[in-house]
Amino acid sequence: MSSLMPGSVSGVLTAASGLTYLVFVPKSWSAASTGAKHPMLLFLHGAGGVNNPENVLGQSLMRMLTQPDYADKVNTIVVAPIAPKRPWQPHLEKAVELMDGLAGELGGDEKRISLAGQSMGGNGAWSLAALYPGKFCSLAPVCGYIEGGREGAGVPSGFDLGRIAHVPTWVFHAADDSVVGVGCSDAAVEGLEDLGAPEVKYTRYAEGRAPPCKTKAGDLPGHASYELAFREEAFWPWLESKTL
């Protein structure tokens, strides 16, 4: 990984498992000194990024990390695997394997690994947190949904929120989301609060980013709350303060 440039996002890389990915290393990172132990973030993209690294790099968090004024404030190693197919669930174990390998290779702090995802990746983040309840020091689902609950009627009865109630969680969603109803996040947050989760934050935007998110499928009004969430001034200080 000596080819990585501090303060920038890599080109598309391929793991031994065959999973492709992007990685950001902060300005303070050095290939010659990986003993610094940086916090890490595993970031799961949305449906537009499936087998499409250009999409992942061209929007949301990974695009922001290509902008020096944004990237210079981030002290976290960000790992962004690229799902070869929908949904995220069949690829989650490979994503964790990738992250663990990079933690050792890049000097990531295994006690300070956070998890975030948007839309389909928000769904993946909820699933992965429950699959590995002792793995992540914080969780940030953006315009996501829990598997089986996309219509926002509530948390599916088969999903055990109790497995992740101990994880500091910051949920983001826009009330006018036309793709994933805000009720999906409302129900998840309410469920965690009912369980007495010690730290649940919820940023519920009245409107998503304008103009609407553009995809090959057309405009998706209200869905691009991820263009707001990762620019929240408190987001990185909150994430980087967490540890197991």
Rank of each mutant, 00 (worst) to 15 (best):
G7L: 02
S10K: 06
G11C: 09
G11Y: 00
G11W: 08
G11P: 07
G11R: 07
L13A: 11
A15G: 11
T20M: 03
L22Q: 12
V23G: 07
F24A: 05
F24E: 02
S28P: 06
W29R: 12
S30I: 06
S30A: 12
S33C: 08
A36R: 12
K37Q: 14
M40P: 04
M40G: 03
L44D: 01
G46H: 03
G49M: 05
N52R: 12
P53N: 05
E54V: 13
G58E: 07
G58R: 05
Q59I: 15
L61E: 09
T66G: 11
P68K: 06
D69A: 14
K73M: 13
N75P: 04
T76Q: 01
V79Y: 00
P81V: 11
P84N: 07
P84R: 03
K85A: 15
R86Y: 11
P87V: 11
P87Q: 06
H91Y: 10
L92A: 04
K94C: 01
L102H: 05
A103R: 02
G107C: 06
E110G: 04
E110A: 11
R112N: 09
S114T: 07
Q118V: 15
Q118R: 10
Q118S: 14
S119C: 13
M120Y: 01
G121F: 06
G122Y: 01
N123S: 14
A125L: 03
A125M: 00
A129S: 04
P133H: 05
G134A: 09
G134F: 01
K135E: 06
C137G: 05
S138L: 06
L139E: 01
A140H: 00
G144I: 08
G144W: 05
Y145M: 14
Y145K: 11
Y145V: 11
I146F: 00
I146P: 03
G148T: 07
R150M: 13
R150N: 08
A153H: 14
S157C: 00
S157L: 04
G158A: 13
F159E: 09
F159P: 06
L161V: 11
L161D: 03
A165P: 10
P168V: 09
W170C: 05
V171A: 06
F172Q: 07
A175Y: 09
D176P: 04
D177F: 04
S178Y: 02
V180C: 06
V180N: 00
G181W: 07
V182E: 03
G183F: 08
G191D: 04
L192R: 00
G196W: 08
A197N: 01
E199R: 07
E199M: 08
V200E: 00
K201Q: 13
T203R: 01
A206E: 15
R209T: 15
A210R: 13
C213I: 08
K214Y: 04
T215E: 01
K216S: 15
A217T: 08
L220I: 13
P221L: 03
Y226A: 15
E227G: 11
E227V: 10
L228V: 11
A229T: 11
E233H: 08
W236Y: 07
W238N: 08
S241Q: 12
S241K: 12
T243L: 06
